[in-house]
Design a protein around this nucleic acid. Structure first.
Length: 590
RNA sequence: GGCCCGGUAGUUCAGUCGGUUAGAACGCUAGCCUGUCACGCUAGAGGUCGAGGGUUCGAGCCCCUUCCGGGUCGCCA
């Protein structure tokens, strides 16, 4: 028997045809002399009927099948009688009247139901990932992922990009995330590193004149996992020569627009909205703001600077600020206990506390209003456009802490107050990031993006005098509060690159040792260039409307970076270690 | 490394104040059943209450340790 169709590809137009279907038994309903089997393949399900009256031997065989058996069925595709139509099933008007059945393989009873929205524990599903992947929702996600990758390749190909592979076994570079290391057998004591991104290689491809490069490629970062972070993940990586920031943003907007059109038939605005880093921080307390709802931050530092509430006045006088969110209507909804819980939220982000005012029918209830004058309170209410039933929440600290705390508090409130429209996509660019940030531990400046990011031309003069003021030619693409892409125009002048290494405290020797090949390349005619990388997993996660990156990766890892199915990572034979000249300092029992 | 949540039948869960033989639903097995599609009916099997220790006359429940999973902070140029 040879398969003629997939189950759910058949329509009423095919009625009357003889078909051969192959797939897994979703469900067997045995009514005695009549047996219904729903057969499942990646397209969906189709009902197959076995009737003892027409073919007793066939019926007897069908009575042996169980869930997840693999069957080949030959039969006639028939229209169901009107009263037998199942409106809840895409192929509910059809069924196959079986003429021949082959049991291609048996199956043990699976450890969990293979069905949409499996309620089974994720650890169990990950251990039996190959079964989990039979479920329609995960199949949809992986098919979606394929389509996104296909659209990316098509789009960038149409725009003159070449897909070029870069090495996976490469050199460890300082800064950034922790590297995954691979020991060299041939060079005892030496290690390759798996790439955190193909950053240096794609810049070298620009030096080589390839002009427009793209690659869908795995990247590796040995850092702790999150709901939206895996240690190995996939980037749609690209780089372009002879471009400025606008060129890169424009071509990539085209991709994102095409993606949303083809996947969800959504027309994203042209151009995609932009926020500067400063605006994003002051309005939303985040450099990846979720703009699907309001609750924007309001600076009230000037009002409380001279107030009698020392928490506020000291914060401002020490160079920080006092900012607030008006949680509209939450004063009437939240209990004292719930407000205290919000205080715990901001403490997670190093805020010392959360000051609050509830605007009630007959006046105010507040944790701190007694320290303020009536004028100051009225000014606060006015600035925050407070109305009865509102809850005003204040954090006073260094700007960094205030933004972080209120930014996360805002997200919590958005969720708690049900302000987020989960069917909506807000896509935006955040631009004008600071080039550098202060590493307090090491007491030096470090690159916020990476050390090859170009400063804005007009800010170069401040590299020595006021590094914090220097903005980068960098841009991130944000969707619904997730960073799904980011990139920059790179430095292509050897002098400027040296300058930057100096600012971040690299000696010439260190720079040469780590990036020597890149710096040398820059001596041989480097075109102006820049690029960007999208996180494919996050992009698919958002398009699939899930909030867990594991749902869009075929074989993901769990929080401790292990794979519950293969049990990787695992111990290896002593012989393997010997060949690699590796001796373990501590060795657990094997 | 810190904080929070969870772990009881194959699965999802309930389990009162610490007290008799740990329950339900689904699934599974067997029998019956010709239009089911959450098929129905009858009967049955199925438990290391994550693990170890402690308190107690008695622990699924209380205490300690530990393992596993999730979320998060740190971390993620």
């Amino acid at each position: 028997m040879k398969r003629t169709h997939r189950c759910a590809e058949l329509t009423v137009k095919d009625a009357g045809k003889e078909v051969v279907l192959m797939g897994w038994v979703q469900k067997r309903r045995d009514l005695g002399a009549l047996i219904f089997v729903t057969l499942r393949d990646r397209s969906g399900i189709m009902q197959v009927v076995f009737n003892s009256e027409t073919d007793p031997a066939l019926h007897e065989k069908a009575s042996q099948v169980r869930s997840e058996y693999v069957l080949a069925v030959r039969g006639t595709l028939a229209l169901r009688s009107p009263e037998a139509v199942n409106k809840n099933m895409p192929t509910g008007e059809l069924e196959v009247i079986a003429k021949e059945l082959r049991i291609l393989n048996k199956s043990e009873v699976p450890p969990f139901h293979i069905e949409e929205d499996s309620g089974a524990n994720e650890a169990l599903r990950l251990k039996f990932r190959y079964l989990d992947l039979r479920r329609p929702d995960l199949q949809r996600n992986l098919i979606l992922r394929h389509r996104v990758a296909k659209i990316a390749r098509d789009y960038y190909d149409e725009n003159g990009f070449l897909e070029i592979e870069t090495p996976v076994l490469t050199k460890s570079t300082p800064e950034g995330a922790r590297d995954y290391l691979v020991p060299s057998r041939v060079h005892p004591g030496k290690f390759y590193a798996l790439p955190q991104s193909p950053q240096l290689f794609k810049q070298l491809l620009m030096v080589s004149g390839y002009d427009r490069y793209m690659q869908i490629t795995k990247c590796f970062r040995d850092e702790d996992l999150r709901a939206d972070r895996q240690p190995e993940f996939t980037q749609i990586d690209l780089e372009m020569s002879f471009v400025d920031r606008e060129d890169v943003m424009e071509v990539n907007e085209g991709f994102i627009r095409r993606l949303f059109k083809e996947i969800h038939n959504i027309d994203l605005p042209t151009p995609i909205p932009r926020l500067t880093y400063n605006e994003a921080m002051t309005r939303f307390g985040s450099d990846k703001p979720d703009t699907r709802f309001g609750l924007e931050l309001v600076n009230v530092s000037d009002i409380v600077e001279e107030s009698g509430f020392k928490v506020f006045s000291d914060a401002v006088k020490n160079g920080g600020s006092v900012r607030a969110i008006n949680a509209k209507g939450a004063g009437a909804k939240f209990s004292r206990k719930e407000i205290d819980a919000l205080g715990e939220v901001v403490k997670t982000y190093k805020a010392k506390g959360l000051a609050w005012i509830v605007v009630e029918e007959n006046g105010l209830k507040s944790s701190f209003a007694k320290f303020l004058t009536e004028d100051e309170i009225n000014a606060l209410l006015k600035r925050l456009e407070a109305e009865k039933g509102d809850l005003l929440l204040f954090v006073a600290d260094k700007d960094e802490v205030v933004f972080d705390a209120l930014g996360h508090l805002r997200l919590e409130l958005g969720e708690k107050l049900n302000l987020i429209d989960h069917d909506r996509y807000d896509v935006l660019w955040v631009t004008d990031f600071p080039l550098l940030e202060r590493d307090e531990e090491e007491n030096r400046w470090v690159a916020k993006h990476h050390p090859f990011t170009s400063p804005m031309d007009e800010d170069i003069e401040y590299l020595d005098t006021d590094p914090a003021r220097v903005r980068a030619k960098a841009y991130d693409l944000i969707i619904n509060g997730y960073e799904v892409g980011g990139g920059s125009i790179r430095i292509h002048s050897r002098e400027l690159q040296n300058k930057l290494f100096n600012v971040i405290g690299f000696t010439d020797e260190q720079a040469k040792e780590r990036f020597g090949f890149l710096l040398e390349a820059f001596n041989y005619g480097t075109p102006p260039h820049g690029g960007l990388a999208f996180g494919l997993d996050r992009l698919v996660m958002l398009l699939a409307k899930t909030d867990n990156i594991r749902d869009v990766i075929a074989f993901p890892k769990v929080q401790n970076a292990s794979d519950l199915m293969t049990n990787a990572p695992d111990y290896v034979e002593d012989k393997q270690l010997e060949e690699l000249s590796i001796k373990l300092v501590t060795k657990s029992e094997q």
